[in-house]
């Protein structure tokens, strides 16, 4: 489900200008390549996957080396439990020696019992202190991985998370949208207040803005606040004539 934000197109456009966004296609490519690189680099691995999650633990972008990994991963989100979700939530790597005897995620372990998956490592992708997803590797035999393997995964995860955090498609527009929306709103407000002062005092745009700035500094208010007062003054006197005392 894709949530639409107001100003979505504008913020996406701005994100592209700021170089923060790549296309969804490129993100999917990146996580796909990363999962292959992880599988090929870590001995004993038969499958690997990389998932980027939104703040509600829903996957927004995923790459897998095979359908078994994809299915095992999808089951975690369906059952709302599993090593990747725990790694993501606790920001710590999870090592499973044998899925068959693993008791921490009973529903998930039961669901994947027939899969060629016995050993698992799941490592969180952490960028700027925030978990943005998880990387996982699977092996068909129990006890295939050890703590040193998890450390190796973490070496991969750190730069990958930093890079991936800049190419997330779902989060970035939301982040930009909030800032941009408030910037456009206040710019509009201030410009309207300038327009009122220009007409009222027959002054140029810069002079009107300077007047608002002086007012803000004198009253320890923000520029937005003094502009809002100017606008409120007009709104409350919709029919005031040229003889009122405000001129």
């Amino acid at each position: 489900m894709i949530k639409k934000y107001p100003l979505d197109e504008l913020s996406t456009a701005l994100g592209r200008i700021m170089g923060l966004l790549l296309t969804e296609e490129k993100v999917d490519h990146a996580v796909q390549h990363l999962s292959r690189a992880v599988r090929d680099s870590i001995p004993g691995t038969v499958g690997a996957g990389v998932s980027i999650l939104d703040p509600h633990a829903r996957p927004v972008s995923s790459g897998f080396t095979g359908s078994v990994v994809e299915r095992a991963d999808a089951l975690q989100y369906e059952l709302v439990q599993g090593p990747c979700l725990t790694a993501w939530a606790t920001q710590e790597s999870i090592l499973i020696h044998d899925v068959a005897t693993e008791a921490r995620w009973p529903n998930w372990s039961a669901a994947v019992v027939d899969f060629p998956i016995r050993s698992v490592i799941s490592t969180p992708l952490i960028a700027d202190g925030q978990a943005i997803g998880a990387m996982k590797i699977y092996a068909a035999t129990p006890g295939a991985f050890e703590d040193a393997t998890a450390a190796l995964m973490e070496l991969f995860a750190s730069p990958a998370a930093t890079l991936l955090s800049h190419i997330q498609t779902a989060e970035t527009p939301e982040r930009i949208s909030a800032g941009l929306q408030s910037a456009l709103f206040s710019r509009d407000l201030i410009n309207r207040a300038c327009g009122i002062l220009m007409e009222r005092h027959t002054i140029a745009e810069d002079a009107a803005l300077q007047q608002l700035m002086r007012q803000a500094r004198a009253t320890c208010s923000t520029l937005k606040e003094v502009s809002a007062i100017v606008l409120a003054g007009v709104a409350s006197h919709p029919r005031r004539g040229s003889s009122d005392g405000l001129r």
């Binding site: 941009l180 408030s182 910037a183 206040s186």
Partner: peptide
């Protein structure tokens, strides 16, 4: 600088 600029843009 990016945050400063966005705010500066927002106040005209």
């Amino acid at each position: 600088t990016g945050d400063l600029w966005l705010y500066y843009f927002g106040i005209g």
